[in-house]
C-alpha cells in the first residue's frame, strides 16, 4: 500500500511526515509525534478522550486518518499551556475546582470546552452539560468538571 507524505501543523509547528493512509490521527499524534496527552479510550467515536482541535473545531481524532489532516492545523492538549508551570486559565480552573481525578478524560474535555467557551463566554450550567455530552468521565460524576468549566467562564477574559 502506498505511503503518503503530509505536511501538518500541530500546536503551531509545521512538520512533514511520511505515513500509511490507515494511520489514525490519534495514533499519529501519540506514536509519531510522541504527544501522548491525546488519550484513546474506545477508538470508535463514543468516549471523546481523543478530542483535538482540527482547524479550531473539536473532532474525534480516532475517527480521522492522519493523511486527512494534510495541510490542516491541529491543536492537542500539549498546546494549551504556554510553558511548564504556566497553566492555561482553563487548566488552572480544572486544578482549582478539582475537575479531574485520574485525568484520562481531561484532555478531550479541555479541548471540547475551549472553543465552546470562546463561542459562549457566559454559559448556563445546562449548556455546559450539553457541551460535554460527548465526553465520558468514569471518575468525577461530572459535577466538578461542570464547576471548573463555569469557573473558567467567569474568568473568560483570559482570551486564548
Amino acid at each position: 500500500m502506498s505511503d503518503h507524505t503530509i505536511s501538518i501543523t500541530v500546536n503551531g509547528k509545521t512538520e512533514e511526515h511520511t505515513i500509511e493512509p490507515r494511520l489514525l490521527l490519534s495514533d499519529f499524534l501519540r506514536h509519531q509525534l510522541g504527544l501522548t496527552g491525546t488519550h484513546v479510550g474506545c477508538e470508535h467515536g463514543v468516549c471523546g478522550a481523543c478530542t483535538v482541535l482540527f482547524d479550531g473545531q473539536p473532532v474525534r481524532s480516532c475517527l480521522m486518518f492522519a493523511v486527512q489532516a494534510n495541510g490542516h492545523e491541529i491543536m492537542t492538549v500539549e498546546g494549551l499551556a504556554k510553558s511548564m508551570g504556566n497553566l492555561h486559565p482553563l487548566q488552572q480552573a480544572f486544578w482549582e475546582a478539582h475537575g479531574l481525578q485520574c485525568g484520562f478524560c481531561t484532555p478531550g474535555i479541555l479541548l471540547t470546552l475551549l472553543p465552546f467557551l470562546a463561542e459562549n463566554p457566559r454559559p448556563t450550567e445546562a449548556e455546559v452539560r450539553e457541551a460535554l455530552s460527548g465526553n465520558l468521565c468514569r471518575c468525577t460524576g461530572y459535577q466538578h468538571i461542570v464547576d471548573a468549566a463555569l469557573l473558567a467562564a467567569s474568568r473568560m477574559e483570559f482570551g486564548n
Binding site: S2, R22, L24, Q68
Partner: peptide, 11 residues
C-alpha cells in the same frame, strides 16, 4: 494499527 491497509486518494 486498527484498520486494514487500503489505498487512499483525495480528488
Amino acid at each position: 494499527m486498527k484498520p486494514a491497509p487500503f489505498e487512499y486518494i483525495a480528488p
